[in-house]
Design a protein around this nucleic acid. Structure first.
Lengths: 137, 137
DNA sequence: CTTGAACCTCTAGCAGCCTGAGGTCACACA
DNA sequence: TGTGTGACCTCAGGCTGCTAGAGGTTCAAG
């Protein structure tokens, strides 16, 4: 049996976040001590590690809830779990694509300024007008 | 003089967002009609385009506020503006780096499942344990 | 003068937490 | 057995950057 603080230290998930996950239905409400404090069993610890890992990978709470439900039915086909992972991969690739466009433009803006005063500053001018942009956005 | 609706159409910034920017101090409170409706001059339109451009590039409201203040002092040196752009570039590059790690791991997870049932599903197993990860995270 | 679109303010909501107030519990030490 | 203190409890409110809706007013065309 772990206190919430121990669980937090073991998993690296902050205490208020653990309580939040419980509220959101990702973690089952744990047993309580006589004085109403949460006491966690080991498998709750595993489940929290699962949640943290999924969050670190950028999955939304809702997607994680789905995966947890899926994992409760070990004999069902796993196409849904695969779909969730594939969707997440797709979303990540889209974000990367967008960020790389931004990177290019910011690099141009950030390195392009050789003015000395605000009135000549390329950063300020580039932000003020799209005429200095390479692609549409 | 533009109504808020015209300003919105010209800049592509939604009306509630314009009011929000005013509330956040990015846009000066504009003149009002007799009936208390906002009436914008052209330079407000430019400023809003500046804000939108910066937001599209991922700059935070706070950073934009700084830039606006800077641009109000055209004879100051522009090192601060350059710094803000450089910081933003750095942040974008960090986000890209993290996302590419995620991409690699998700690709492995999403394509690695050849099980048919949840209990054999690589997606579920990979999320449950870091043992299947390639790098630390 | 009427209609209907566009505007106003204010409140509340979204994700995914974090912080703080005000109070209780657990446990070691004297 | 008392006491200190650190960990815990709940609940409310805050954060970013908007968005949506209620309920009411104004503007401009016909």
């Amino acid at each position: 049996m772990l206190t919430i603080g121990n669980l937090s230290r073991r998993t690296g998930v902050k205490i208020p976040t653990i309580r939040y996950y419980e509220q959101m239905g990702l973690l089952a409400p744990p047993e309580r001590s006589e004085g109403n404090q949460r006491r966690y069993a080991r498998d709750e610890c595993d489940r929290l590690a699962f949640i943290k890992h999924a969050r670190d990978l950028g999955l939304k709470i809702e997607a994680i809830r789905e995966l947890i439900e899926l994992s409760a039915h070990p004999n069902q086909p796993c196409a849904d779990a695969d779909r969730i992972a594939a969707e997440q991969l797709h979303a990540v690739r889209e974000r990367i694509g967008k960020l790389r466009k931004l990177e290019r433009e910011l690099a141009r803006i950030a390195t392009g300024c050789d003015g000395e005063q605000i009135k000549d500053c390329y950063v300020i001018r580039a932000l003020a007008s799209h005429d200095l942009c390479e692609d549409e956005h």
